[in-house]
Simulated assay, not measured.
Amino acid sequence: MRIRSRITIVWVAALCGLLAMGTAWADPDPGPLFLRTGSGSSLISLDLSLLPPSGVAQPELVLDFGFGTDEGSDPGTFHDSVSLTLQSPSGSRTALLLTADSTGMETAPPTQGGMTLDPTTLHFRTLSPSEFLPGYGLASAFSLVFALPPGLLEGSLRLFVDLFDNQNGVRSGAFINHWGIIDASGPLTNTPPRFVDLEAAPDVDGGYAVESHARVDLEQRQVTLDRAQEARFFRARAEVGVQLAAPRLSGGDWVFGYSLLGVQIVLRSAADNISPFVTETGATIDLVKREARTPRAARTRVYQFEGNLPVAITSIVPQGDQIVIRFEYRPRGLVLESSTQATGPYGRETLSGVDFGSQTLVIPRFGAARFYRLVSDQPLRVTRTTLDGSVIRFDF
């Protein structure tokens, strides 16, 4: 992606006279506005004035935005593109929020002379592009919430939407809707939110995930969800493949047995700790029993395992003409994860015990409790939760 920002485009236009700029002023949030290529200009631009609420304490920019094109994503091509830029009224501070073309979108790209933004401060929620960008071969749309950095808001703010046309005759377009500045610290109001998501987690501290089957009624301010079941899905992860056995209850804990897949180890020995180790070619290794047998040497030998994960020797016992070496695996990064759905998302479980010898993981016994929260573009709170047959109903 080649970044084209308002800072560099104005400089090119001033020196070369190559670009024509169409500018539109608009009051906050009059409805969707559209930009399309094919007008004969290389730059089609919207210049929007943003006025914050009186006495705003935590100003945030909110808007809906989308870009569509029939262009391909061939590398090395100068594609049609769109950018969003904020500028203080004096023009002393400029912040490029994003730029997008057929190859993708880049958030908060660095630009010479512009403010440096943290990309994680721009929060996106995907929207359907079909209403405002129908028929394009490639289209995307989203809601954006951005906490304005100190010094950028000087009483008001200018928002530029710039569509760059490479003049190849292939159509591209963009739209903007529902733009404005809100006060994130403001009290609850009667203004209907633009969206509400219900998120749930097995623990009050996380990890929360959107309940995709929740039914939201913005007018009635109500969210309905099928009543949660007690089922939970578990998986284990480590540096090699891990397979869980069915858990069993032990007192107040769940105990999960596990086995490791794809283990590859060899037994090596040396006359002492400083001599070179050589492979015990006559050794047999049982990966399930975690036991190795090798011919007994005339003199004492030092043994070690080498392979694709750490192995700890637990005992070395002579048996007739053989040496029996028992060991246990010590996989790095062994974690237990769980989810309410087999497809995820999965969150890490806090283990109360790990026994490498018996290859078991232990977690406290869990019940059917679930924790819920509402996520929206406005501050919300749940006013009532009721059980109604097979569903849970949340009023907000």
Rank of each mutant, 00 (worst) to 15 (best):
G251H: 09
D101P: 14
S390M: 13
L33N: 01
F65C: 13
M21P: 13
P187E: 00
R194N: 06
E106L: 15
I313Y: 00
S376F: 09
R330Y: 01
L244R: 07
I285Y: 05
V242L: 03
A57E: 03
D377E: 01
I363Y: 12
G91M: 09
P75T: 01
T281M: 11
D29H: 05
G357A: 08
F277C: 10
F164M: 11
E306Q: 10
A298T: 06
A184N: 02
E239R: 13
T116S: 15
D253C: 07
E106S: 13
F164V: 09
A271F: 02
F65D: 00
L380Q: 08
G104M: 10
P30Y: 02
R330M: 14
L117A: 06
R232N: 07
V242H: 06
Q87D: 06
P331G: 13
D64Q: 15
L261T: 02
R393C: 14
R237L: 14
P52R: 08
W25E: 10
L287I: 12
R365D: 02
L97M: 09
S90R: 11
E219K: 13
A271G: 08
D64L: 03
R36I: 06
S88R: 00
S172N: 07
I316Y: 00
D272C: 09
R326L: 12
Q322H: 05
F67D: 01
Q322F: 07
A184V: 04
V196L: 15
P109W: 02
P75I: 08
T343F: 09
F67T: 08
P379Y: 00
S390K: 13
R4N: 02
S90E: 02
H79R: 11
D253W: 00
N273A: 11
F67L: 09
F305R: 06
V82F: 09
S390I: 11
E328G: 09
G357D: 03
L188W: 10
L48K: 12
R370W: 09
R235A: 10
